[in-house]
Design a protein around this nucleic acid. Structure first.
Lengths: 207, 207, 207, 207
DNA sequence: CATGAATGAGATTTCATTCAT
DNA sequence: GATGAATGAAATCTCATTCAT
């Protein structure tokens, strides 16, 4: 009995991954159920055995991804002390997720954002809550920044704005990379991003 | 002999503006032709007198906006000398366009980006070319940065990456603002953005 | 005042001719009012100054043509005595009308026939009555054939069927010619058609 | 595992037959997809599972019919020796097909012809090629006529024209019959048609 | 009179979802 | 469970006709 449940979850995951593939290529709005079914190598009707509808797949994709990246971030960030180093870790994890490990996901981030800023029905808003996700991130970053300010590493600042800028800038540079993958590689991205950002907020030492 | 005289370009503009209103509220994919017709206060069929289909409206919206913002940027930026000041102008123009003057457009940027990173048919790619738009911006920024480096204001850097970061970060923070308009206002955005960015790339003076 | 009326009739004729041009190229069903307007070099609305609707144009075209060919036939056929010669004249007039003088009309005969065999509303049936036109022709041919039988030129026959065959065969060979105009010319058509038909019905002389 | 098994070809045939029914009543141009759906007893959307659009149905109807009549003709005509007898068989098969067995098809012939003489796009011209069909028929008839000439049964003639006349006259008399089914029956049609035509081309015996 | 911009009724077409097998 | 044929609601799109200028 137990293995049955594992199979079911595994199959859902397979379908979500297939959906992600198609979403990334055509965009969420232009993806038809038949496209997902074909990509998953299953029948159209079978999808409805595992998901209520297309929105449901999208929400699952959303949850799956942010759970994973959230877990990874929580785990890794806990291991460091220096605020600048923690931010660096955050950047590396994000970049690694979007560029290296989960290539297709990067391409649908925009669809997620686009959906995220609009009003939906109760059902979707409850689960698919981009604002909540970013609030969480922002709160973590705010704490790190405050820690840095307290420790005298960072200059005094509007931590809420700076946290938003950190997150926004990271997303934004990834967006640029999506459009022109040839302009720079992921190492350049991480290194230069951190250099400029940390430089921008660090306490100037008066000599 | 003389039938009603209509300024076709003006009418097209009216329809595009009405479309923008609806796009910003529902998203491009969820907007129906009838929604646009109602918003424009015209009949369903009338839209087809001016546009081939929804894509055509979208492309016109794209062109209209980037022509305007491009013109505004070119005009204002020509008036300054100091690289840091020019960047500041660029930020202010962009922020002012997206937040103050052209409120609805900001909400559609995500749809534009989302479409922009995907492959389309020849026809669409020729006109709706996000990559080309950003290339143009990037080249302008690269020159400004290089100018600053040459003048000793900015530290030596990978100007291509830094330009991409500048543009990406600006878009990214605007994105954050779209989701949570209460977290900071446009003045805070411009000031702090510039402070951190300029600080991040300026030549450190050894004393 | 009087010249006004002449102008009006002349303009109607112009529109009908323009319509015929387009009908022959695209088929009646696939012709749009705008096509006719463009072909006539007038505005779309102007057509409605002269015709109630598209059907009305079609009916006028029908009447115009069959009045003309009917007049021509009546006039010329009255000048001959010999039944075979009269039939020959009938063929020549028809061929000349469809092939030489009124080229476009031949191409829409099929649309006329196609419409002619179907039920329509009262209005159309009253004016656009293909059956009546053919009945008229048939009655004329029947009389000619009967005359020939009486005179001993033609063998005894079912004159109703033979008249139908004469008309049908003439239409049919013209149809073949429409599809392949290179296979034979109008002189060959007339000569051979008459030779075979007259041969087919003439009284065999026992020697 | 195994969903409903449907013979796609059989279903396509059913839809084509239903379409034929409606076409014959209203004409191809005046037939709506919903009419065909209702006639076939299926949903509007189901048609699109089997056909791309109305043209596609029309083309399939064309192919289906001419394949059938072609096969029937080839089969039966192979069984006779005497040229006059073979022509008689050809007439009987055609008449039987159009009048007796495939009643509805006769009514659509005009739409087929009307479309057949016009230019279409490559795609349609390739499949829906009336000219090719008639060329085939004509070549067969030419051979039969030549055979008769060689054997001394038929007089010397322009076989290409005569073949066209044979086919055209047969179509033409059927057209007449379509308009006035009361004027003669199919037996009269076949007998008299052959009598007159054969008489018209046979070698005159000098006594 | 002449016009063509505007219209909406009605056609075509798409596609998420259902459900019999 | 798995399937894909069937569906019709809802979208797109067309075009004959009207009517203000």
């Amino acid at each position: 009995m137990a293995p049955k449940i594992v199979d079911r979850e595994e199959k859902k995951r397979e379908i979500v991954m297939a959906a992600m593939e198609v979403f990334s290529e055509k965009g969420v709005a232009n993806t038809k159920m038949i496209d997902i079914a074909r990509a998953a190598g299953i029948g159209k009707g079978t999808i409805y055995e595992y998901f209520k509808n297309k929105d449901d797949i999208f929400i699952n994709l959303f949850e799956l991804h942010f759970t994973e990246i959230g877990n990874a971030a929580a785990e890794v960030m806990g291991r460091y002390d220096d605020p600048a180093e923690i931010l660096q870790q955050f950047v590396e994890i994000t970049v690694s997720f979007l560029i290296n490990e989960d290539h297709n996901f990067a391409e649908i981030m925009l669809d997620i954002w686009a959906e995220g800023i609009r009003e939906h029905n109760e059902e979707i808003n409850r689960v698919f809550n981009l604002d909540a996700v970013y609030s969480q991130y922002r709160d973590v970053i705010i704490q790190i920044l405050q820690d840095g300010v307290d420790k005298g590493t960072f200059c005094s600042m509007d931590t809420t704005f700076t946290a938003s800028l950190f997150i926004g800038a990271l997303d934004g540079i990834l967006l640029q990379w999506l459009m022109r993958k040839d302009l720079f590689d992921s190492a350049t991205l991480t290194d230069n991003f951190m250099k400029i950002f940390i430089n921008g907020i660090k306490k100037e030492v008066v000599k």
